[in-house]
């Protein structure tokens, strides 16, 4: 291969303030997709160019770990105090209000608790294709999960990784759950994710029966869905 070391690699946009900001929006968005949500929002003060860029990122990774105060402790065996939680929640609510959620294609949520009893805070994730819930507590009888599904009509892939599915995972054997008809069970029938192709459940020791039952019950509303279960070692 011939190699001529050309001295000039002149930027196509000379006169711009800096090379990074000179990149087109779509590439800055690609770069932001490798960052976590809080840092993404923080880029808004970099310069006028960056002020509103974050609002239209297609991919958000919202992680409670970003809100932990002491940085030196290991994030694996992390404990979160109430203050961390408040910051996280405050951030999440502001993010949902100010981000152009309709543009979102991929959303990853890593949080211990998700409570969204108030379904009005949910906006429609009109273009969401990929949803990952990582280490989320779904033991609210899947109410939160159902809310996500109800609001994501174009979802193609759902990943539930190491989520908590029930409150009494310790004595899962031989203790039949009291059968009650919760609101999520009613609402789940309204779920219409016709494009959902894959639901991947990666679990540890938790009991996934209830979740699988729920998915089977609404399988008529998820005509293309394949269910993939994987137990982590």
């Amino acid at each position: 291969m011939k190699r001529a070391r050309a001295a000039c690699s002149s930027s196509p946009m000379d006169g711009e303030p800096d090379r990074l900001s000179a990149l087109p929006d779509c590439l800055l968005h690609t770069i932001m997709s490798f960052m976590k949500a809080r840092q993404v929002v923080q880029t808004c003060v970099l310069s006028t160019r960056w002020k509103h860029l974050w609002r239209s990122v297609r991919c958000l990774n919202l992680d409670l770990g970003e809100f932990k105060d002491d940085e030196d402790s290991d994030s694996q065996n992390s404990t979160y105090d109430y203050e961390d939680w408040e910051h996280f929640e405050d951030f999440a609510v502001n993010l949902m209000i100010r981000h152009n959620i309709a543009l979102l294609e991929s959303f990853r949520l890593q949080a211990r608790r998700v409570h969204s009893k108030d379904s009005t805070t949910f906006k429609e994730f009109r273009n969401l294709r990929n949803l990952t819930l990582d280490k989320c507590d779904l033991s609210d009888d899947f109410e939160t999960l159902v809310l996500f599904l109800l609001n994501s009509p174009n979802l193609e892939k759902l990943t539930l990784r190491c989520c908590k599915f029930s409150n009494d995972s310790k004595k899962k054997k031989g203790t039949p759950k009291p059968k009650k008809t919760s609101s999520s069970q009613c609402h789940s029938l309204d779920v219409q994710c016709v494009n959902l192709k894959l639901t991947e459940i990666i679990y540890k020791d938790d009991d996934v029966r209830q979740l699988v039952e729920l998915l089977l019950r609404i399988s008529g509303n998820l005509p293309r869905n394949h269910l993939k279960l994987r137990k982590m070692d």
């Binding site: 303030p17 690609t30 770069i31 932001m32 997709s33 840092q39 880029t43």
Partner: peptide, 23 residues
């Protein structure tokens, strides 16, 4: 993109401006 994101991660806005050569 991942490399550039890594250069931004964990930095304050002023640090980012300095690292990435903003005027």
């Amino acid at each position: 993109a991942k490399k550039v994101a890594d250069m931004i991660k964990g930095k304050s806005p002023m640090e980012i401006r300095r690292t990435l050569g903003f005027p």
